[in-house]
Design a protein around this nucleic acid. Structure first.
Lengths: 332, 332
DNA sequence: TTGAAAGCGCTAACAT
DNA sequence: ATGTTAGCGCTTTCAA
């Protein structure tokens, strides 16, 4: 039989209200004597307050849901860590959900989170078809989206990264360096980030008064496997290029590998620039020039905004756009 | 005002008991008519069952705690994913906790998890001093440890990897290949895995009737930074070696990088073998020969065992030792 | 096939 | 400084 607040109260000869007060450090008006008596009993009987019961009364579970596509994708652990750190600092717990970019799974998770009465949700929405909106019908807690700018009426805040300007900066840098024909290995255009990065690629060319070649744009997926395959396809078609701007680092890593296997020298023959700045980009040879995404910050800020909403503080910025940073290394 | 089971009951003209039964699919004895009536109301009023309240009654929260050092360390996302996948399949949610290998934080998290009434805990314990035992005093739910074999009375099950035989296999392979002086860049000996891997390294030498050179063993940390530094130190001391067996892939990646920068050819001049088989080992040049750790499996099996304990199934194996697999690639 | 009622462990307003 | 009391929203036994 687990010890409850009643047991402690009875043994201490006080009411449960009194015990509750000392457990929750609202003990300004409790005599030191009874406080100690209670504390001793708690210690002696290994009393653990049942926060599920508290939640019933207070209507707060102090937990937040984090819905991301896949924690196994190197992009997400840092976000998760940022979320968890801030949450922990404020006494919240994080429920981790991997949606696999599957709308069904995502919706199911969100429903479950609502049933568990989380105090709020942080969501990196699955890539959806253009104009599709997420049905948050039964949700009545604040939702913050991270990285993906989706439409849904109940979303209270957004943390996004300025993908376009990040890509613009990277491609401008390449153009400045003298690259003339820059291949763009893009992500899937169902994803807004892919489009934005492409926009940046385009804008840079426009500002340099340079043409964009249709054959130098290839849409694919955000994976190393695809980078590896995609660049080979371009190579095999005999299309000429002197630089590659990849929509993320995974693509860049795959492409780099394919290039090396073909005996192409990077950066001497062809320069490569990635996007995200995941950890492993510094561990390879040559180290990858890339656009740093403030992932930890994204998670941290998202959690911060969410907690502010939960605790009904005034949230001035409901849409935070984080800046990227071009990290120049040896691959370009 | 949120809709509750009472509201639905009143509107349907039935008791809350009846609504409860249809919500939880225990509706064998409910007439189809009332069932439909209730279902329609639920739909119409966006009724969300409050699982916190259910938990109060059923004494099950359907959530499990996952305490790991750091989700940002590439070793852990796969474990977390394995845990989450199995948990999800059985209707459980995962609360993610990063302990940073800090005993204080770990203990605090475990206490919080108990207060939140999780149904069980999966723990990769922080590296502790020899013989130290974790105080699980207030815990009254099953705990399963993963990867680290620690001592604590309340631990119900363990999932570990046969580090010694993994290392043995790797080093035997190197010895077979003709490597004579194999440097071992070890992890911290406060960690049991480091010691076990060293044991395997030693055993292989013994079985080959080969000596172990003291100067070829260096204890360090499980990071790329340390691998980078550590091997440079050995190099600078002029110590001769023709192969490197690293206690994990991060160390190997760091070492590889240092070697490349010094113009040492891998594997021609020096061969490298790692441990873990993290994703990025296939993305580098040369691809790393390494010992595959079944991380996803570890997480999955741990969650499986935990759920079995929670649901009071008979658990035959309380200590599962997972086998590693030597993955031979180009770095050796 | 359905309902009445007790109670899970706790908090908070109010009283004393 | 401490206690009384009324729930929070749900499940479950037992009776009807």
């Amino acid at each position: 039989m687990k010890t409850t607040i009643k047991d402690i109260a009875k043994m201490a000869g006080v009411s449960t209200a009194t015990v509750s007060k000392v457990v929750n450090h609202k003990d300004n008006n409790i005599s030191e004597a009874t406080r100690q008596r209670i504390l001793n009993l708690i210690e002696e009987y290994n009393y653990v307050p049942n926060r599920v019961a508290s939640s019933m009364v207070t209507k707060k579970t102090h937990s937040i849901g984090l819905v991301i596509p896949d924690i196994t994708n190197p992009f997400f652990p840092e976000i998760a860590r940022g979320v968890e750190d801030l949450a922990n600092q404020h006494g919240y717990h994080v429920i981790l959900c991997n949606s696999d970019n599957d709308l069904k799974k995502e919706v199911a998770y969100i429903a479950m989170l609502q049933e568990k009465m989380v105090d709020g949700i942080i969501l990196t929405a699955s890539a959806m078809r253009e104009g599709e909106t997420l049905d948050l019908g039964r949700i009545h807690v604040p939702v913050i989206t991270v990285d993906r700018d989706i439409k849904a009426s109940k979303i209270k805040g957004k943390i996004i990264v300025d993908n376009k300007s990040g890509a613009y900066e990277a491609v401008s840098y390449m153009l400045n360096k003298g690259y003339k024909r820059i291949l763009h290995l893009a992500g899937p255009f169902t994803s807004g980030t892919s489009k934005e990065r492409y926009e940046g690629y385009k804008l840079a060319h426009e500002n340099f008064g340079l043409p964009i070649y249709e054959e130098l744009f290839v849409e694919g997926f955000y994976t190393a496997e695809w980078g590896y395959e995609g660049i080979q396809r371009v190579l095999n078609e005999g299309i000429d290029f002197d630089g590659v701007f990849c929509a993320n680092d995974l693509i860049a890593l795959g492409a780099l590998k394919a290039l090396k296997e073909k005996g192409v020298k990077v950066p001497d023959d062809i320069g490569i620039v990635g996007f995200d700045d995941i950890y492993m980009t510094t561990l390879i040879e040559p180290r990858l020039t890339t656009v740093h995404q403030p992932n930890y910050q994204m998670g941290y800020k998202a959690a911060q905004m969410l907690v502010d909403f939960i605790e009904e503080k005034v949230v001035k910025e409901k849409k935070i756009i984080l800046k990227t940073e071009l990290i120049i290394r040896e691959s370009s």
